[in-house]
Amino acid sequence: MDVFMKGLSKAKEGVVAAAEKTKQGVAEAAGKTKEGVLYVGSKTKEGVVHGVATVAEKTKEQVTNVGGAVVTGVTAVAQKTVEGAGSIAAATGFVKKDQLGKNEEGAPQEGILEDMPVDPDNEAYEMPSEEGYQDYEPEA
């Protein structure tokens, strides 16, 4: 019985440690998101679009440190934060509304985080759909 109880105690310690790591990862992701939003706020009209992409990228980098179902929630929060940063930029006159959601080359930025393969159960990952990809044929 002692062996059984000791095993359960060790398992509990492992769960607590994993929860603490997840909590730490979420806190880091939130900190990076805040950094990115402050970065966007300090940019001029020309830099705002690039700044919004930076927020998304920093958040995406930190999301990889967070495991399990938390990833889905962090990704949703990050996307809403990026959308909010863009709205703030438009409201303050840093950028025109028609410039939001495009990178410096004018290509749409939507789907940055949505296409990231995420499995809350950590069982399997699927690649994003290939609808947006084109076949590449090298020139002879």
Rank of each mutant, 00 (worst) to 15 (best):
G132A: 11
S42G: 06
E35M: 14
K12W: 13
F4Q: 00
G14P: 01
F94E: 02
P117F: 04
E139T: 03
A78T: 09
A56Q: 06
G47Q: 14
A56E: 01
A85R: 03
K97D: 15
E131C: 12
V82C: 06
K58G: 00
A19F: 15
Q62T: 09
N65Q: 08
E20I: 11
G86N: 12
D98N: 08
E114C: 15
K80S: 06
T81S: 05
Q109M: 04
D119W: 04
A30H: 02
T59S: 05
G106R: 06
Q79G: 05
V16G: 03
A89S: 05
G73Y: 08
L8M: 06
A11E: 00
G101N: 02
T64I: 14
V26E: 00
E104N: 06
V40Y: 07
L8A: 01
A69D: 03
T44A: 07
A69C: 05
A89N: 03
N122V: 09
Y133V: 05
F94R: 01
S87W: 15
V15E: 00
M127I: 11
V15W: 08
Q79A: 08
I88E: 02
N122M: 10
S42Q: 10
S87G: 15
E13Q: 06
V37Q: 00
N65D: 04
K45T: 09
G7H: 05
E105D: 10
Q79L: 13
V26Y: 15
E105R: 14
G47F: 10
K80W: 13
V16D: 01
V40C: 04
K21R: 13
T59D: 00
G86V: 12
V48K: 01
N65C: 09
A85G: 06
H50C: 10
K45G: 03
A78K: 04
P128T: 06
G68I: 15
K6R: 05
Q134G: 12
Q134S: 08
G7Y: 07
K97R: 13
E126W: 03
A11Q: 00
V95F: 14
Q62M: 06
D115Y: 12
V55F: 14
G67N: 04
K45S: 07
V49E: 03
A140K: 08
E137S: 10
G51I: 15
E57V: 04
V16P: 00
E105L: 09
Q79Y: 04
K23G: 01
E28S: 10
A17V: 10
D121T: 13
K32A: 13
S129C: 08
A53T: 09
D98K: 08
G106P: 12
F94V: 03
K43H: 05
A11W: 15
E61A: 05
V55D: 00
S87Y: 06
K32P: 01
E114S: 11
V26H: 00
E28F: 04
G31I: 04
A17Q: 10
A78S: 03
T59H: 02
Y39S: 05
T22E: 00
T72M: 15
Q109W: 06
G86S: 12
I112Q: 05
V16W: 13
K10H: 03
Y133R: 02
T59C: 13
T59L: 05
V82P: 02
A85V: 11
V77M: 12
A91N: 07
V74N: 01
A76M: 05
M1F: 01
Q109D: 12
G14Y: 15
L113G: 11
M1H: 00
E83T: 08
Q79H: 06
A140P: 07
E137I: 04
G41D: 00
G84C: 14
A19T: 02
V15F: 15
G14W: 06
I88T: 03
K6M: 07
Q79C: 09
A107S: 10
V40S: 00
Q24N: 07
G41P: 01
S42Y: 10
G84F: 13
F4M: 03
D135K: 05
G41F: 09
A90C: 14
F4N: 00
S42I: 13
V48E: 00
S129M: 10
V3H: 04
E35I: 15
